[in-house]
Design a protein around this nucleic acid. Sequence first.
DNA 1: AAGGCCCCGTGCGGTTCCGTACTCTTTGGG
DNA 2: CCCAAAGAGTACGGAACCGCACGGGGCCTT
Lengths: 236, 236
Amino acid sequence: MLDDTKALAGNMLLATLSRADAALVSPWLENFEMILQKELYQTHQSIDFAYFPLGGICSVIAENAQGTRVETGLIGREGFVGIPIILFAEKASSRIIVQAPGRALRMSSTKLLEAIELSRSFHKLLLQFAHVFSVQVTQAAISNAHNTIQQRVARWFLMCQDRADAREFPMTHEFLSKMIDVRRAGVTDALASLEGIYAIKALRNRVIILDRSILEEIAGGSYSVAEKEYARLIPA
Amino acid sequence: MLDDTKALAGNMLLATLSRADAALVSPWLENFEMILQKELYQTHQSIDFAYFPLGGICSVIAENAQGTRVETGLIGREGFVGIPIILFAEKASSRIIVQAPGRALRMSSTKLLEAIELSRSFHKLLLQFAHVFSVQVTQAAISNAHNTIQQRVARWFLMCQDRADAREFPMTHEFLSKMIDVRRAGVTDALASLEGIYAIKALRNRVIILDRSILEEIAGGSYSVAEKEYARLIPA
DNA sequence: AAGGCCCCGTGCGGTTCCGTACTCTTTGGG
DNA sequence: CCCAAAGAGTACGGAACCGCACGGGGCCTT
């Protein structure tokens, strides 16, 4: 339970709420520590909570019937984790893990359903984010079909940095290779090549972004589409 | 305007409506002929109508900032075209073209927005379909990242046949190559190989599905996930 | 009947990425 | 301080696709 409405401002969706909506959801939100590697949702499992990150990054990882996994999106404090709830899907269709730790506000699924029942404006806001996220997944689909590993890595770094609010963040080659579903050695090569043109600095367990503009150039057209859609729909 | 509510039964979403919801939307629906190649939505353009197909197939084609295009999903009479409307996104994020002609019922965006305002159960149904479609896009993203052309073609045939209600449907190699964003010759090879194991018969301008079970085996795990999600959420 | 256009089969060199696997470095725990 | 484990660089043969290109065959129009 949160009596201090100012805490809402840490999440960019909650920050846009009207006074009435803020008063509605505030009592139902509680603090939650998103610990690294924590699995927020499991595929096909029922969903207990929605999470509104105040920091950190969540990886949305899809799985097919054979267990092949690919990351389809990232969610940070610009959004929320729990889209299937507001689409009345009841169960998670993707795995969601904490990729970078941080704090979040969370609300039980039942309270969230109650909230969107009581406030159409709140429901609308969350649905608009669901739309933006679907654009993100769509762009991932294009990128996976058409881009090289180097391009996909560049896109991933850009999206990651947008949510990390830092030039540097932790990451292993092994982890990234699982996210984009390629060989670990493929990631090593791509990183070495990006480092060669001074776009990044690759260190053990972490990466430093040196030049975003180079990354944007390399990423091709699959970065920025979802970002523009967010800017169009969600007030700053 | 449709006075005959029986026409609703041709679309599997409308068919599930309660008496009250059917009475609500019926007056706002009108007949529409989906002509081959017709562009229902254009990327970034505002949306005038939602379409509830009674037959035929619509291709959802995403585009990135550089104009690279990939098909991310198919919609037939099991669903509807107009997800961005009910997510309050106002504009189309993908191009949608009629891949196989058929009839549809359509409703203006403003009327649809009014309808979901008046009936929560109607909104819920459409949102559930939006969820299923997002699963479809997600599975496309996995398939694009991980599967061979042959596997992706097999998946496409299965999804196409589900909506075509026929063993045979028209298609050129060129068209399919643009849908999955590969070389035209790559499609030719994949088809020849699928024909060699008697899964399909490839003819000029059309294909005949001979053995679905072979296709399902080849498609890997990316077919059936969205289909199961549909069956779980939308009553038959 | 002829000409032209679309559809499709085929070929070739080149690139990307895969599977596998070995080595070396760095790090944290006993 | 040493050792096991994890992270990261490197290598190699093979598979999948690419871009490009040529040619043959079916189909429609004039």
